[in-house]
């Protein structure tokens, strides 16, 4: 009799567990959904926050200069381009502002875009250990990579403010368009980075090709030269590159010396949107096989 009693105590007390009527999760083979579940992103928002926080914390650990690098990179780039393009090649800004400022305003969105796209493009492969061990919405990974670089962009803007004070450029009304431009360049980085990172899981060629691709992209975009140095009949070709509208837009918004090229900006926006749709579609389609082939 005593034995029976002890055994009852040893059996875990269950029964209070109230199960939901419908399953919380159904895992089924071959179910294709074209859209991301937004509620799931909301559920995992804290993870996104921690991933961004990790990237920022880790980036400059064990470096002597630390966050100074964020300031130094665009400044050094600006100086080098000023020397080679502004002085030696004799490229002039078309709106009459000093060349260093002209270049910096272009480098600001470009550096953000290139860093974010590169970091997002390699993000999934670099998180292979996470992807094969735990579930979470995979899109969080490239989004976090882009998010972390946004902090750098903010710091670069602070440097710009100092430069504008130095060259005595007053703020102008065009600045109100700036948030829109930042959204556009972020969207572009997100779209391109997401597409690249999904492809990278399958084709490691992306990892090798990406820096090279960005290099070419840099030279075909009006970052260190104005669009106006090209004949007018080629301007529409330039506008197909979403970076054109963004870089020109940044300069117009920051210095207010020339009118906004709204058509170019609209084309940029449309191309970004199309690229974004392609990226999301591709990512969604490939997402399910990530853990198996990464």
């Amino acid at each position: 009799m005593l034995v029976t009693r002890t055994s009852e105590a040893a059996v875990p007390a269950v029964g209070e567990v109230e199960l939901p009527r419908r399953p919380l999760v159904v895992i089924e083979a071959g179910k294709r959904r074209f859209l991301f579940k937004l509620s799931e992103f909301w559920e995992y928002r804290e993870l996104l926050y921690f991933l961004i926080w990790r990237d920022i914390k880790v980036r400059y650990k064990q470096t002597a200069l630390g966050v100074v690098w964020v300031v130094l990179q665009p400044l050094l780039m600006m100086m080098i381009f000023t020397l080679f393009f502004g002085k030696l090649a004799g490229i002039r800004a078309d709106d009459g502002i000093p060349y260093p400022l002209f270049a910096y305003a272009g480098l600001l969105p470009w550096t953000f875009f290139a860093t974010a796209a590169n970091s997002a493009g390699n993000s999934l492969v670099n998180s292979a250990s996470l992807i094969t061990k735990i579930y979470f919405p995979r899109l969080m990974v490239p989004v976090a990579a882009v998010g972390a670089v946004l902090v750098d962009l903010a710091i670069s803007f602070c440097v710009l403010a100092v430069l504008m004070v130095y060259w005595r450029i007053p703020p102008n009304r065009g600045l109100v368009v700036l948030p829109l431009l930042i959204c556009l360049v972020t969207g572009l980085a997100l779209a391109f980075g997401t597409l690249m990172t999904a492809l990278n899981v399958r084709y490691r060629d992306v990892k090798i090709a990406l820096p090279f691709l960005l290099q070419i992209w840099f030279f075909v975009s009006p970052i260190i030269y104005p669009v106006s140095i090209l004949p007018a009949r080629w301007h529409w070709v330039m506008a197909l590159n979403p970076m054109t509208g963004i870089a020109e837009g940044f300069r117009a918004a920051l210095y207010g010396r020339k009118p906004f090229a709204w058509t170019a900006l609209a084309i940029s926006g449309a191309t970004t949107l199309v690229l974004f749709a392609i990226a999301m579609f591709t990512f969604k389609r490939m997402e399910k096989s990530f853990a198996d082939i990464i």
Partner: peptide, 10 residues
């Protein structure tokens, strides 16, 4: 983490 080839889980 990975998807089944066939079948269902609730």
């Amino acid at each position: 983490i990975t998807e089944p080839t066939a079948g269902k889980i609730e």
